[in-house]
Simulated assay, not measured.
Amino acid sequence: MISNRKAMRAGALLLSVILVLGVAGCATPPAQEAVEVVDQLGRTVKVPSKVERIASPYAIANSLVIALGAGDKIVGVETYAKDSKLYAKAAPHLLEAPGIGSGRELNIEECLKLNPDLVIVPSRMKEAAEKLEAQGVATIAIFPEDLDQMADTFALVGKAIGCEERANELVNFYREKTDMVKDLTASLAETDRPRVYLTSKDPLTTCTTEMYQHTMIELAGGQNCSAELDKGFWAQVSLEQVLTWNPDVIALVQGAKFTPEELMADPKWQSIPAIKSGRVYQFPSNLESWDYPTPGAVLGLLWLTSTLHPDLYERTNLEGDAQAFYQQFYNIDVTAEELGL
């Protein structure tokens, strides 16, 4: 009897130990392993395996996160987000989200207040990225400034936020359309490729070859007038330089502070072929800028192709492609008026 009682007590003690260890394990589960990514500055970054709070001062990054289906996880945005018509339709909560900067600067203090799991910045913000990392905040830098870099950006962000399948869908759509344009324009002779001058918000500011806009012009079957500018981003030029370039076509970015009509009426520009022929256009879309390297930039490529070579890609095709794009990746229906077509 005594030995049986001792055995029972020993068994009860062992059971108690097992229960205590079991409860402790449920209360404090082992930390999940981080996801390791290499950003577009070549930095290896460890990102939490489950990202729930994303912050970025970069509109390009936020538009991409929405397209990947994680817009509800964005907690900090660019300071001018309240003006975004795309957000109003696809992610209206972002209109009231805290602003933490722009594509040129980040308010680190305000960003940290949001307790983000992940911060996404443009590659020019290397110093800010390192400061955030020093505070224990996973931060990746992106650089979507040509065709391959754009696809790499989609894949990088998709992996970082756990949306790899969706990122692959976006890359496939992007590749399909860019390959189509390559095929359409590949056989054009140099004489059939118009000289294109792209203006920023100011008529005497244009793109360099380090920018996606340069790639867009060349791929769409044009010749970028400013191809000799190979350093930096938006570059200031003189009117004399534009006159020397003598563009056949002038394209204004969507956010230009002047209209094609105003430019064509300027007496100082009258000797330019684009002005004489009336081939001065503005990127459309009342939702977002198609001339910037967001996911929607592929639509800007299609628009520019149809503008430079309407015989190769008709404008009516663009409307259908654009509507399919926004339905697939932003889950919204858009009208031709919203597209600016």
Rank of each mutant, 00 (worst) to 15 (best):
K113P: 09
P267F: 00
K257Y: 07
P203D: 06
E314H: 15
D179H: 14
A129D: 02
S285A: 11
W269R: 00
I217E: 02
V51H: 04
S277R: 11
A88I: 00
D179Y: 05
V137T: 12
F283A: 13
C163Y: 02
T244G: 08
I120A: 06
T208A: 07
D152Y: 05
G22Q: 11
E127L: 10
F329Q: 00
L118T: 02
E127D: 15
E210G: 05
Q328D: 06
Q327G: 13
P203G: 04
A134G: 02
L302M: 12
A10I: 14
V38D: 03
N62C: 08
W303L: 04
E228C: 14
P116F: 13
Q135R: 15
T208Q: 04
D39I: 09
N62Q: 03
V249S: 04
P48Q: 11
P144G: 05
E164L: 06
H309N: 02
G42L: 14
F143H: 13
P260H: 04
V334Q: 00
G71R: 09
N246C: 00
K276F: 08
G296V: 01
G278Q: 06
T316N: 12
E288M: 13
V75E: 03
A141R: 15
V75D: 02
T209E: 07
I100Y: 11
D248C: 08
G25F: 12
L243I: 11
Y174C: 07
A12N: 12
I54V: 13
A128L: 05
Q32D: 12
P30Q: 11
V65S: 10
I161Q: 04
Y292F: 13
V196R: 06
P267W: 05
Q213M: 14
S84E: 07
L15E: 01
A297P: 00
T215R: 08
Q254M: 09
A12P: 01
A151N: 12
E127T: 14
I120V: 08
L15W: 11
E337H: 08
F154K: 05
R124L: 14
A81R: 05
S226Y: 02
L204M: 10
Y292I: 15
D72Q: 15
T316H: 12
E78S: 15
K159T: 10
T178H: 08
S187Y: 08
V237F: 06
E338I: 03
S49K: 13
Q40R: 06
W245M: 06
Q149N: 14
M216T: 09
I108W: 07
G25V: 12
A67N: 01
I250S: 01
Y330E: 07
A138T: 06
I74P: 02
L229F: 11
V253H: 02
Q223P: 02
K177P: 04
A88W: 00
E165V: 07
D148H: 10
N224H: 08
T294G: 08
T307A: 10
N286E: 11
V242W: 01
Y313W: 04
F233M: 11
V249I: 13
I100V: 14
A138F: 10
R43E: 10
R9C: 09
W269P: 03
V171S: 09
A336M: 02
Q323W: 03
D72I: 09
Y326N: 13
L68P: 08
P30T: 12
L339R: 06
E319D: 10
L170D: 00
D248M: 10
I66S: 04
V242Q: 02
L13K: 15
A10G: 10
I272P: 03
L68Y: 11
E240C: 01
L86S: 01
E337M: 04
A189N: 12
Y58D: 12
L302E: 07
M216P: 03
